[in-house]
Simulated scan of single mutants.
Amino acid sequence: MVLERLKEYIDLKGVTVAAFERSIGMSNASFGKSLKQGKGIGSDKLEKILSVYPDINPSWLLTGAGEILLTKTPKNVLKQNEDKFEDINEDKRKLQKTSSNDNTETVVVDNVFKLRTDRLIDRQQIPIYDMEAVAGLVPLFADQYSQSIVEVMETTLIPKCDGGLRIVGDSMYPLLKSGDIVFYKQVHDIMHSIIWGEMYLISFDIDGDEYVSVKYLQKSDTPDHIVLVSYNEHHKPMEIHINRIRALAFIKASLRLNSLK
């Protein structure tokens, strides 16, 4: 039954039924009521669900065949840490993008990745950096490149952040797309502060070159090694020695800019 599979998906994602109903335009408690009564769901609602939740596997949703998610890796990541996730779609956080000419644009935070220990900040201003100008996380975190700030965003009700960066690449697609902004909080004690299964902005060394990426970090069976895991199943997990990490930061929120007229 489609509704039962949807309930399984909701449980996997850690989203409340109430938030799910609001996200697809269902009236309050109508999903639970339809589930109890064994009713079906209309094609218009199915189209809305697939547009709002692009990681759900349409074949699985309609027939039960295949994996729940279009990618296999996130299923394990989310199951391992489901007790840490709260309702990231409960409210849409709003930001104001400010500039020197006072032009403002209202945008919406798409995801908030909040640990249980995080406190939501009523209002904060977050600098957005140009990675090409910085040329790596190490000098950025050393606070040597204030001139690389391209804009400042004023935020409400997201965890404390140190800055934001525009990402490049599709390793976290469809959760994150190339061009999305991720907001991060720097990790100072890398050796002792990694929370396995969480999403990080990571800088690591390969043959003397620095690579910057957004990945889930998983514990390796090899001592002193970690596994970098992508959301996109077409990107294979990568194992590195922990000493190759140059800089690390929690991903606290992500933003996909949408123009509102």
Rank of each mutant, 00 (worst) to 15 (best):
V2K: 01
K7Q: 14
E8L: 05
I10F: 00
L12T: 08
T16S: 14
V17P: 02
A19M: 03
E21K: 04
R22K: 13
G25S: 10
S27Y: 01
G32L: 02
G32W: 03
K36L: 06
Q37S: 11
G38A: 10
I41Q: 04
I41L: 10
K45C: 01
I49H: 07
V52S: 04
Y53N: 01
P54L: 11
D55V: 02
N57D: 15
N57R: 12
P58L: 03
L61G: 06
G64I: 08
A65C: 00
L69T: 08
L70P: 02
K72V: 11
T73I: 11
P74A: 09
P74R: 01
L78G: 07
N81D: 11
K84R: 08
D87V: 04
I88D: 09
I88T: 04
I88L: 12
N89V: 04
K92N: 13
K94C: 09
Q96N: 07
T104W: 09
V109S: 04
V112W: 04
V112P: 02
F113L: 10
K114A: 07
T117W: 03
D118F: 03
I121M: 05
R123Q: 09
D130E: 09
D130S: 12
V134T: 15
A135K: 09
A135S: 14
L137I: 09
L137V: 07
V138H: 12
A142C: 05
A142E: 15
D143Y: 09
D143R: 15
D143K: 14
S146W: 08
I149S: 03
E151Y: 05
V152P: 07
M153Q: 14
E154Q: 09
T156G: 15
L157Y: 08
P159S: 02
P159M: 01
R166P: 00
I167W: 06
V168E: 12
G169Q: 03
P174E: 10
P174V: 05
I181N: 01
F183V: 01
Y184W: 12
Q186S: 09
D189K: 11
S193D: 14
I194D: 02
I194W: 03
D205L: 12
I206R: 13
D207E: 15
E210H: 08
E210G: 05
V212L: 08
K215T: 06
K215R: 13
L217Q: 05
H225F: 10
V227R: 15
V229E: 05
N232Q: 05
H235W: 15
P237W: 10
M238K: 06
I240N: 03
I240L: 05
H241K: 10
I242L: 13
N243A: 15
R244T: 04
I245K: 07
R246W: 05
A247W: 02
I251Q: 03
K252V: 01
A253I: 09
L257M: 11
S259G: 00
S259P: 03
K261I: 14
K261P: 11
K261Q: 10
